[in-house]
Design a protein around this nucleic acid. Sequence first.
DNA 1: CACACAATTCATCACTCGGTGAATTCCTTC
DNA 2: GAAGGAATTCACCGAGTGATGAATTGTGTG
Lengths: 232, 232
Amino acid sequence: MREGQTPARRGRRPGRSGTREAILRAARRSFSERGYDSASLREIATQAEVDPALVHHYFRGKAALFQAAMRMPDLENALTQALQPEAGGVPPRQVGERIVRMLATLWSDRELPRTLAGLMRSAATNERAAAMLREFLGQVVLARLGRDLPEPDRDLRVALVGSQVFGLLVARTLIKIEPIASMPVDELVAAVGPTLQRYLTADLRGSAENPSPGARETRPPADSRAVPSGNA
Amino acid sequence: MREGQTPARRGRRPGRSGTREAILRAARRSFSERGYDSASLREIATQAEVDPALVHHYFRGKAALFQAAMRMPDLENALTQALQPEAGGVPPRQVGERIVRMLATLWSDRELPRTLAGLMRSAATNERAAAMLREFLGQVVLARLGRDLPEPDRDLRVALVGSQVFGLLVARTLIKIEPIASMPVDELVAAVGPTLQRYLTADLRGSAENPSPGARETRPPADSRAVPSGNA
DNA sequence: CACACAATTCATCACTCGGTGAATTCCTTC
DNA sequence: GAAGGAATTCACCGAGTGATGAATTGTGTG
């Protein structure tokens, strides 16, 4: 708290100051709360108790700071470890449950959800952030999750898992929709695990709720009247 | 195209000009592409081929313009109609499929997805927009969808459906994750419909992938080692 | 025709933003 | 202990933001 009384003498201050890390922390927080475009370097500098010009001194600008703040080797490592298939190598039966449990536990951590939320909030507005998020999902998740999946629909399976996980994350940590937000992990696992399991291993082209194969070529005929199919 | 040659004489121009509607259209587009905070009144005015001050003349300011542009009685009506249960009143067997199909068809419309995308993009950054989205989801969707559901876990069911639908919408229209983004509606329905169906009607507390009841109290024992359960 | 009012444009205001360059102070190394 | 470089602060710049108020020109009503 250098504000107020002492008028902040210029020049280097004695001792190690950890300014760079302070900036990174403040940046992660600000980006995660406001998204890339709305976060401001000045406010980040203020929260880090640092002069705004220092942000430009340590990082080259806003874009570089964002990239530096949103690198998440920890999350990658955790994901890698948790998504590692059992020693056998064949996709086990409880992948779905394991994913939900792992994620729910992971994002009760301190820093990881921030970086993830920063990516997500920023991706809503900023195209480069969206590209970063896409790449993260593709490279890290798809690569590690999808390699043992059956070839047809492999990308689709991973994308579906991604969509459900994304929605869950938003509901639980960003928007805080209430039954989901404060729900014990075990119940979440029981509720959502089977969904992911089905996305990963079941037949995704079969008819909807008859798990029995055979009645598959039959299109549901007259139900399309609930859907306005014409438009302007 | 009033820019360029004629230096845009001041004062009222003859005839009906439809300025208000032009501003609304431009606003919807801008908000849906950039989100509330990043959209600028000046750019909206430019796209509407109109003086920036006119935006303040017709609407009182940015917030009011946003609200005016994001009101979507059409979407509400479509949702209401499509979520209306069959004449009987009992939850039908194919609600899940119907929801996905309706949404996929709805957002191939022209204006509705814009307003919805505008709400979502803005909700990522702006708290008031988030409140609007929450309220819309709660009032319109939850109220109409949840009233025939079994009482225990009713909110949970609706919230789960919301999370999956939200993730799907983001993946398909905002972030454009690829297998999902350009997928025919029928395949989407087949892939995601059963998920929603299960969220709405199945037993959400049962064990994961054994749909057979009975082996439910059995905790999967040694699998929790894949999950770091302790944290700081 | 005259008058109130709506529609439009212009010239600003007060702010905030990201970014730059020089000046000052301290640490490190010779 | 002098020199070089790293860390910090200050004073700016140009651009863009939402917003305001006055001036100008048309429409509609009596």
